[in-house]
Structure formats: structure tokens, C-alpha cells
Simulated scan of single mutants.
Amino acid sequence: MEEINNVEVVPCTESEYLKPFRVLYNQNGTKKSWDFMQSHDSVSVLLFNTTSHCFVLVKQFRPAVYMCEWEKAKTKTSQGAEKTEEGDASESQEGQSAPAEESSPSSPWPPASAGVTYELCAGLVDKPDLSLEEIARQEVLEECGYDIPASKLKRITSFRSSVGVIGSKQTMFYAEVSDDNCVSAGGGDPREGELIEVVKVPLHEAMTFAYDERIPKSLGLIFSFIWFHNNMSPKYKISTNV
């Protein structure tokens, strides 16, 4: 999963997932405009395995995260090159010889691990004939390998994500599973280009995991752990190490 090569950035002229728009409007008498992306709504599921008392998460490479890290690396490289050039120029002015060859600033690609994030099991709402619960059930089966009825999914809440750019709605569910429900290793649907690793986080390490900034994760994952700590932990009488 963490071997990424032949990276090429090209214009996106058509996509079935994102459509860019610019809205023009008047707000309190002032003309304004805003650029936004139209996208599908989504579902996510906080899975808790009652056999092993752990959360079942997914770990996958996210190109958008990777490109953000590349931009940061490129900026640092450019700044470093500028400082080097300033130093060389200063040395030349003082009568010292500058390097015989000048190398252009390079922007090396960061390691693939820079784009890997921990997330809840989730998926797009792109099947109008299915309920949100049924879509979530399918995602749990495909990504994490647990076969559970849709009736076992408890709705936590819904919220708007990326409100400045996308504004789509995500509906979050909670489900308890056991080892008996596990029918496959999960990993997503290869036909859809998914390459997912199933990860388990012990209950007693959950809040430490959530607040560890060294572990890249989605906001929904952090929120769901806090929700569990506030609403479900007393049931299991186990500290979530908050």
C-alpha cells in the first residue's frame, strides 16, 4: 500500500465524484462569489468489536493528503535553496569563489506514508435505491469484512464536512460486531481501486490514539471516539484513557 511512484499531476477536466462551480450572489446588498465543489454525501461507521474490546478502523493512502505534504516539502525545499543562493552570493561578494555548477531547486516526493491516514469505515451515498443503513452495511462488509444486518447500525448523527469547499453531508453510525461476524479480511473492492488495511485500536488506548497528532486521522474518527467515551464506555466499565 505504501509504494507510490510515477506521480504526475494533471488537470481534472471531468469527474464523477467532484464538480467545480462558482456561485454568484448578493449578501446584505454586497455582490459576492464563492467557488465550491459538488460531491456525493457519505456514510461512516464506528465499529466496536465486543470480542476483543477494540475499535475496527481502516487505513489507506489518500492522494489529497499526500499532495498537501508534497506542497509543504516543495516550499521547504525552495526556501532552503533561496537561503543557499543568498549565502553563495554573499561569499562571492567577499571575494570567495562560488560553486562552479548551480543546481536548480528540487522538490522530492515525500514517502508514501505521508499520505496514509486512519479513518472510520466509510463510503459514498451513490446508490439511490438503498437506504443509508444498507449502504453503510455494505461498506462494513467490503472494507472491514464483518457481515451484520442493517438493523444493527445505530445512527449517531450527521454533519457537514469541508463546509468551505464541499459542504456535503456525512451520516455517522455505530455498530457492535464480534469475531463471529467476521467473514473475510476486508480490504475494500479492488475493482473500485480500493486498497485498504484493517486496523484495530484497543478500547483502553482509544483517546490517547485520538489526540496523538503524530497519527494522521480524520476528524470524524476523533469525534466518534469522544462520542463513545461519553455514551458507551460506562456500559463496558473500561477506561478509554481520556
Rank of each mutant, 00 (worst) to 15 (best):
C54K: 07
K74H: 09
K31F: 14
L47M: 13
T50A: 04
K72Y: 12
A73S: 09
K72W: 11
Q38L: 14
K32I: 06
Q60D: 09
T84D: 11
V56C: 05
V45Y: 04
H40Y: 15
K74Q: 12
S42L: 00
L47Q: 10
V45P: 07
K32V: 07
E82S: 11
E86Q: 14
Q60M: 14
S78H: 10
V43D: 00
E71D: 11
F61Y: 11
W34I: 13
K76A: 07
G80N: 00
V45M: 07
K72L: 12
T84K: 15
V65L: 12
T77N: 10
S44R: 02
T84H: 11
S44D: 04
F48N: 03
V43Q: 00
S90Y: 15
K76L: 04
M37S: 12
V45G: 03
Q38N: 11
T84M: 10
M37G: 11
D41E: 03
L46D: 02
E69Q: 14
K74G: 08
D41G: 04
T75S: 10
K72C: 09
A73D: 05
Y66P: 06
K76Y: 01
E71C: 10
D41S: 05
K76P: 01
Y66Q: 05
S33D: 10
V58E: 06
K59Y: 13
V56H: 00
L47P: 02
V58D: 02
K76M: 02
P63N: 03
S33F: 07
F48H: 03
E86M: 06
V58S: 05
M67N: 12
E85L: 14
Q60L: 15
Q60H: 14
K76S: 05
H53A: 04
A81V: 00
A81T: 01
D41C: 02
K31C: 10
